[in-house]
Amino acid sequence: MEFWFVSLTVVVIMSGNLLLRAGMITIKDSAISQRSPLLVLAEALQSWRVLLGVLLVLLGMVAWMVSAMVWRMDWSYTALGLSYVATIVLAWWFIGETMTLEKMFGAIIIVIGTLLIIRNSGF
């Protein structure tokens, strides 16, 4: 049950982030370059994609953090790390972002490094 719950929280974080990004790219270039970040944010929050994305990421993060603190499973960090790699592929597939070998290898090396830190630091 723990395995599936942690996996679900990571999928929620990843989906929320992709939704958030999909909502943010709909904001017009003119609005970004001429306005302060706060005004850009105010405009962005009128989009249902951005609102839902922020809500999903917040819920997913809280659920993931609490479950990682209570259950202390290696899978929590492994799953989050795998979502970095999955996001590169999904963002390329659904949003049209660039996918390069350096991005993929960079993300994989970050995942391995994060796991080494977590396993040997007693978090």
Binding site: N17, R21, V40, Y84, I95, T98, K103
Partner: peptide, 23 residues
């Protein structure tokens, strides 16, 4: 919210793996 503003012009596939720096 700050993360959202960052994603207006920058790719999530570039920044999301950098969350690993948190560890």
């Amino acid at each position: 919210l700050m993360w959202s503003v960052l994603l207006v012009r920058h790719q999530i596939s570039f920044f999301y793996p950098l969350w690993g720096l948190g560890s």
